[in-house]
Design a protein around this nucleic acid. Structure first.
Length: 616
DNA sequence: GAGTTTGAAACT
DNA sequence: CAGTTTCAAACTC
């Protein structure tokens, strides 16, 4: 078991010679030293070998469930210097690949006694991975390592940076008690491969976000395997394949044979069509993975529940048996000579595309879309920013004017002026105290966070991911006061006036932004209710509803069409009227073709006029 | 649950 | 860096 660390001979092996610690005498890239002498010795090498950080922007229209607040709960494992958030395998992973301003170094990631999935009695029974109906694992996965002492990447716990807890492993060293050994193992692993503990799945610029839904045909999950898989026999359609397991398509990084895990692959489609509802859930989970840039044994997203595997495989096998769909050729890989992956006979419908390749033909697959998908376009954001900046400027001006007036009035009253000065001082102190309190709170709330980081203690990536906002705050404070003291005026302006201006600006900006969000929420609610209404109509009269599939919603801006799908699942999107959610007028329009619908939807992709957004 | 298959990791 | 071995998960029966 995961708690059985240390005792018993290891390995139970043929290799013969063993070190006194029981480790095989084989000399790996760097022999591990489990004598414990390494306790506390630094991972200086690893520490300084902070690998380059891939900064990738990921966008998705798939709604990402928020991380439960419990994720930041502080475990009570007192021997752990860094209380890690409890992270299930489905947990959103750190944003190392996501452009986090200061991603943790590799050593930071690893030096941390990272995540202890759940604190239980050491004698706790092994817990199977429990999956909810939606396929979301509720417990961390448990390894079953026997020969690796859970100190090699073979061990999923070790590879994912978690301690074994409640695992079924034998002779486990991946625990608090064997931290020195574990550290050495980490060091050795890093020496072999500095990126060993980095997320295997990097976010990919390719994906759905740049395509119209009708062009997509299927959801192409973002991200690609950094190293690529090397599958030979699984067709990359089994969980043996790391790409498949992460629910991403194989990429040019892969060296797989007879790959079927590419966009447009019939086998792959068959697999997913076999369990569409489950797939939808899976998509969200995988989107998490893409978003966070990490899934799998280094955070792999949970796989789809294998409940329907049989039926899926039937379909898959049928597809395989069909000679028309059998592919001998490797599908195209941007630069590795993969051919188009097209079918070897004319029976298969269409050429396929690879991530980053040509668009695939449309299929009838429903694409899950957020209710707010496409509502916010880049120009919208720019417009909003402009509005906010303008507002901030106006606020500053107002405050300054007011202040000047007041000062003029007060000019002759020396006594009052002195009092004011004193107040400035005390106010300044108060501000300083406030800032310090904020800082203290943050440090306390996440002791393992910035404070530890500043001390050189590592952060688990998940923790870092969760505290990025706090980091920003801390950064602001630090920037205001590089020497650690806090500028009483705030932001280094050293005057209450500035402080007031900033406060007012902040108030105005936040207020405006809040209003904007409120409107978005209102719009989403409106849209949802419209979708629901439509869905009900479809239920009542499916034929009609499906045939017409058009709901005209009259707004002050004209008519908007709603796609014939409920709750965000759609292939078309409507353009919001952000400033004023209108009462719904549902009108079914007979004889409205889908083509019309699509054409309109294209038009509707245009962002709202800037004037509208000013109202935000 | 035991045995087999598979592919990543470790090693040569 | 290619080939081989080891390992543990995935899968099958």
């Amino acid at each position: 078991m995961g708690e059985g660390g240390g005792e018993g001979e290891f390995p139970p092996k043929k290799d013969g010679v063993e070190e006194e610690s029981g480790f095989p005498a084989k000399t790996p890239a760097r022999q591990l030293d489990f004598t414990g002498a390494s306790d506390g010795h630094s991972l200086s090498k690893a520490t300084t070998a902070a690998p380059t950080v891939v900064t990738t922007e990921v966008k998705t229209t798939i709604v990402i469930p928020s991380v439960p607040s419990s994720a930041t709960a502080t475990p009570t494992m007192t021997t752990t210097p860094l209380p890690p958030p409890a992270v299930g395998i489905s947990q959103v992973r750190p944003t190392v690949l996501m452009g986090t301003p200061n991603p943790p170094s590799q050593a930071q990631i690893l030096n941390a006694p990272i995540r202890i999935p759940k604190l239980e009695s050491p004698k706790a029974k092994p817990r199977p991975v429990v999956e909810a109906r939606d396929g979301t694992p509720q417990k961390k996965k448990q390894c079953n390592c026997k020969h690796s002492r859970c100190l090699k990447l073979y061990c999923e716990c070790f590879a994912s940076g978690t301690y074994c807890d409640g695992c079924n492993c034998v002779n486990c060293f991946n625990n608090v008690e064997n931290e020195p050994a574990r550290r050495d193992a980490v060091e050795a692993t890093l020496e072999r491969n500095p990126n060993a503990f980095r997320p295997k799945i990097a976010a990919s610029p390719h994906g759905v976000q740049n395509k119209r839904p009708e062009e997509i045909g299927e959801v192409v999950l973002l991200g690609k395997h950094n190293k690529g898989c090397h599958c030979k026999k699984s067709g990359c359609l089994k969980k043996y394949c790391e790409c498949f397991q992460a629910n991403i398509l194989c990429s040019e990084n892969c060296k797989c044979l007879d790959c079927k895990n590419f966009e447009g692959s019939e086998e792959r489609l068959a697999l997913f069509h076999g369990d569409h509802s489950n797939h939808m859930t899976y998509l969200q989970l995988a989107a998490n993975a893409a978003i966070t840039g990490a899934v799998g044994s280094s955070g792999f997203a949970p796989p789809p529940a294998p409940k329907r595997r049989k039926s899926q495989e039937i379909m898959f096998n049928q597809a395989n048996k069909d000679p028309s769909t059998h592919r001998l050729a490797h599908f195209p890989q941007g630069n590795s000579g993969r051919t188009s992956g097209g079918p070897t006979s004319g029976a298969s419908p269409s050429p396929v595309s690879r991530p980053g390749g040509n668009a695939s033909p449309a299929t009838s697959k429903i694409v899950y879309r957020s209710l707010l998908a496409d509502i916010i376009q880049p120009p919208d954001v720019k417009a909003l920013c402009s509005v906010l900046v303008t507002s901030a400027g106006e606020a500053a001006k107002t405050v300054t004017d007011k202040r000047n007036e007041t000062e003029n009035r007060m000019e002759d009253q020396t006594e009052t002026s002195l009092a004011s000065s004193a107040q400035d001082h005390s106010q300044g102190n108060k501000d300083a105290a406030d800032v310090e309190m904020v800082e203290a709170d943050e440090n306390q709330a996440d002791k393992s966070g910035a404070e530890d980081a500043s001390k050189g203690k590592p952060l688990s990536p998940a923790t870092l991911a969760l505290m990025c906002d706090e980091q920003d705050t801390i950064f602001m404070v630090a920037a205001a006061s590089p020497n650690g003291s806090v500028d009483p005026g705030g932001y280094g302006a050293n005057s209450q006036g500035q402080s007031e201006i900033y406060a007012e600006q902040e108030r105005v900006v936040l207020t405006r932004f809040r209003d904007c969000l409120s409107r978005l929420i209102s719009y989403a609610e409106l849209k949802e209710s419209k979708c629901s209404a439509l869905a009900r109509m479809q239920l009542q009269s499916p034929a009609t509803a499906t045939a017409t599939a058009t709901v005209a919603v009259k707004t002050e801006n004209g008519i908007q069409q709603m796609p014939p799908m409920a709750n965000g699942a759609s292939r078309t999107t409507t353009q919001p009227t952000l400033n004023k959610p209108q009462p719904i007028q549902l009108t079914t329009t007979a004889n409205t073709s889908n083509a019309t619908n699509t054409a309109n939807s294209h038009q509707l992709h245009k962002p709202p006029a800037l004037s509208e957004k000013k109202d935000l």
